[in-house]
């Protein structure tokens, strides 16, 4: 895959893996309204994944479509960031992941609406409205849980603590990102960091929470160096495609 196809693949993998994770909540959330809203976010992510992965397959030109990419690659070929593959944990941990990711994704998609790749620009234009809702939903819950009971506060702190080491990876610019940016297709992710920090700090302040202490970033997802969690997610997600090769559904 060339840089532009890989760029689309990364966008698709982030959405796919997060959508898959969030869908695990379906039927098990703390209250029906939360069940419905998490399913909404999951559906949006799976929709974005479908568009980005189909595009990556087209750009690759080897006859793979979004399904082939989603269901027939192994861990080392997945390019999602480590944040989205993290386990749901309790509701606070899920919401911590969503807070960090959705604000990033909203800023990213806003910038990508100006992409020279018309398909990426079009997907971003639709998805930015979705992610803006996701960011609001996550922020509202972080505020409720942070400024709720003692228990919810300590759970929210633990959830943020789990996820925080994966935040830096979102903004890393490597060769693929640089090539995509030079081509006018991708954007400078590092430049989104200041706006992201300001948004996260504002939410944490309203939630009466402190920013987690700085720590060494855990990275590698973009190059297929994942956590142990991803393999289990894939073995579940890819079961039918692997068990019945060649069948259509």
């Amino acid at each position: 895959m060339d840089a532009i196809a890989t760029y689309a693949l990364r966008l698709g993998d982030d959405s796919l893996i997060l959508g898959q994770r969030l869908s695990e909540w379906c039927g098990h959330a703390p209250v029906i309204e939360v069940d419905l809203s998490l399913a909404n976010v999951a559906l949006d992510q799976i929709g974005q994944a479908t568009h980005f992965l189909n595009l990556a397959g087209e750009l690759e030109g080897k006859g793979r479509d979004g399904d082939a990419l989603a269901f027939r690659r192994d861990v080392m070929d997945f390019t999602n960031c480590l944040l989205v593959e993290q386990p749901n944990g309790d509701f606070a941990q899920t919401i911590a992941r969503q807070l960090l990711f959705s604000h990033y994704q909203e800023l990213l998609f806003t910038a990508l609406t100006g992409s020279k790749n018309a398909t990426i620009a079009a997907i971003a234009a639709k998805a930015v409205k979705e992610t803006s809702y996701h960011a609001t939903l996550a922020s509202d819950w972080v505020i409720r849980l942070g400024d709720g009971t003692n228990e919810s506060k300590s759970r929210m702190i633990a959830g943020l603590d789990w996820m925080w080491r994966f935040a830096d990876e979102l903004f890393v610019m490597d060769d693929i990102d640089a090539a995509a940016m030079t081509a006018g297709v991708g954007v400078d992710k590092a430049a989104l960091r200041a706006a992201w920090d300001a948004r996260i700090d504002a939410v944490l302040a309203e939630a009466t929470l402190s920013r987690p202490a700085p720590r060494r970033a855990t990275t590698g997802g973009r190059n297929g160096r994942h956590s142990e969690h991803l393999g289990h997610l894939l073995s579940d997600m890819q079961f039918l495609q692997r068990a019945y090769p060649g069948a259509t559904w």
Binding site: L16, Q20, S23, E24, C26, G27, I32, E33, D35, L36, A39, N40, A42, L43, I46, G47, A49, T50, L53, G66, D67, A70, F71, D236, M237, F239, L240, Q241, A247, W249
Partner: peptide, 26 residues
Amino acid sequence: WISRAPNLRRKAILLAKVQDEGGHGL
């Protein structure tokens, strides 16, 4: 079966369907 749906289209449809059931419950 949401996590094991066989392709992206089926996954989205099933998730939307199960979400509809939650909405009906509500």
